[in-house]
Amino acid sequence: MISGVWISRNDRLLGQVSVAIPYVHSKRLALLVEQMLEHVEIAFPDLDALAISAGPGSFTGLRIGYSLVKGLAHSLNIPIVEVPTLDIWAYQEGPKSVPVLSLIDAHRDEIFYGQYRWENTDLNRISDFNLIHISELTEIIEQTTLLVGGDLVKLYEKISSLKSDKIILPLRLKSEPENWAFCELAFRRFMNGELSDIENSEPLYLRAFKGVK
């Protein structure tokens, strides 16, 4: 899991600081923000918006990220731009002629997914975000579809065992989303006015909590 902070001017990445060791979110995330701003010589009051990869993903990681972003947004009085993590995975593969299904491992043989279609350089989500058993993938894929997502490496065997001729996998499987894709999507949302504030922003947990009384 990556704990990282990126800064962009318009849609251009200016700086990044990231750490890929476990359990650093709670200890280091705020420090990473401070250090990165120092590196690019930008002060907190110069920021126009704060973007966050909105999940789904690690429950604790999302909570910590959101706490920090909400705290900063409140004190700086600037908006929040929430970018669903599945959008980033779909976007970073670039325009495709076939539909794209972006997925994340939800454990217990379940996946979170979203379906997308490219129209020229625009990526449109054509399904809700959903949680399904991995064996149901063949039911929701109606035509040849590219699967993307960082957990494909982990899920490769299970997906292969579905023996679907409609599933295409990327040539290179990546384990972390690309920061440039996150920055570009965040900038697009910012320019489109897709903004949140501390009241209405919340992580995409997706998993229905089973067994709650």
Partner: peptide
């Protein structure tokens, strides 16, 4: 009550290293 578990993110622990 089991609702308390919602704020623990148990899967982060159960499916980690």
């Amino acid at each position: 009550e089991k609702g308390e578990l919602q704020n623990l993110g148990l899967d982060d622990f159960f499916f980690d290293k």
